[in-house]
Computed example of a mutant assay.
Amino acid sequence: MTVRARIEATLRDNLSPDRLEVIDESQHHAGHQPDITGTGETHMRVRIVSPAFAGKSRLDRHRAVNALLKPELDAGLHALAVEAAAPGEATRW
């Protein structure tokens, strides 16, 4: 299973999102560090709308996603961008 697929499964299982998009942006970061070539799954963007975020601050939403994805970060995911919203909130995507 790919990193992207594991991230999607983890977030679906734990946050029951109304919308979820996991985007692999690794190719845009080639050369930022010597071991980042742009060919692996090193940089991900998560766009998620979930009822679990209702009434939570932006920081708390990010903390929740980061906590769920800690195993991926510990295993080598270099960067994780999070765009989290509750249902009914405006998004730019």
Results as ranks from 00 to 15, higher is better:
His78Pro: 10
Lys56Met: 14
Gln27Ser: 15
Leu59Tyr: 08
Lys56Ala: 13
Ser50Phe: 00
Ala54Lys: 11
Leu68Asn: 04
Ala75Pro: 12
Met44Glu: 10
Pro71Asp: 09
Thr10Asp: 10
Gly88Tyr: 07
Thr42Phe: 06
Ile48Glu: 12
Ser57Arg: 02
Ala75Phe: 06
Arg61Lys: 08
Leu69Phe: 06
Arg12Met: 05
Ile7Glu: 09
Val49Leu: 03
Glu41Pro: 06
Asp60Ser: 11
Leu80Gln: 06
Pro17Lys: 00
Leu68Met: 14
Leu11Cys: 07
His29Ala: 15
Val22Pro: 06
Arg47Tyr: 04
Val46Cys: 08
Val46Phe: 05
Glu72Met: 13
Glu8Lys: 03
Ala64Phe: 04
Ala84Gly: 09
Pro87Tyr: 03
Thr37Ile: 06
Glu83Phe: 14
Pro17Tyr: 00
Glu41Lys: 01
Glu89Lys: 01
Leu59Glu: 12
Gly55Tyr: 07
Glu72Lys: 01
His32Gly: 13
Ala64Ile: 08
Leu77Ile: 07
Gly31Phe: 05
Arg61Leu: 12
Leu69Glu: 13
Asn66Ile: 08
Phe53Asp: 13
Ala86Val: 03
Thr42Gly: 15
Ala64Thr: 15
Leu11Gly: 10
Thr39Leu: 09
Arg58Trp: 01
Arg12Trp: 00
Ala85Glu: 10
Met44Asp: 02
Glu25Gln: 06
Ala5Phe: 05
Glu89His: 01
Ala67Gln: 15
Ala79Met: 09
Ser57Thr: 15
Ala84Pro: 08
Arg4Pro: 03
Ala79Thr: 13
Ala64Ser: 13
Met44His: 04
Leu20Trp: 05
Asn66Gln: 13
Ser26Asn: 09
Gly55Asn: 11
Lys70Met: 14
Arg47Val: 11
Arg45Ser: 10
His78Glu: 10
Met44Lys: 00
Met44Trp: 04
Gly38Cys: 11
Glu21Lys: 01
Thr42His: 05
Phe53Met: 09
Gly76Asn: 11
Val22Asn: 01
Ala90Gln: 13
Ala85Asn: 10
Glu41Met: 05
Arg19Ala: 15
Leu80Glu: 06
Glu89Gln: 14
Ala64Val: 06
Thr10Lys: 04
Gln27Leu: 11
Thr10Phe: 00
Gly38Glu: 13
Asn14Arg: 15
His78Lys: 02
Ile23Leu: 14
Ala79Trp: 03
Ala90Ile: 12
Asn14Val: 07
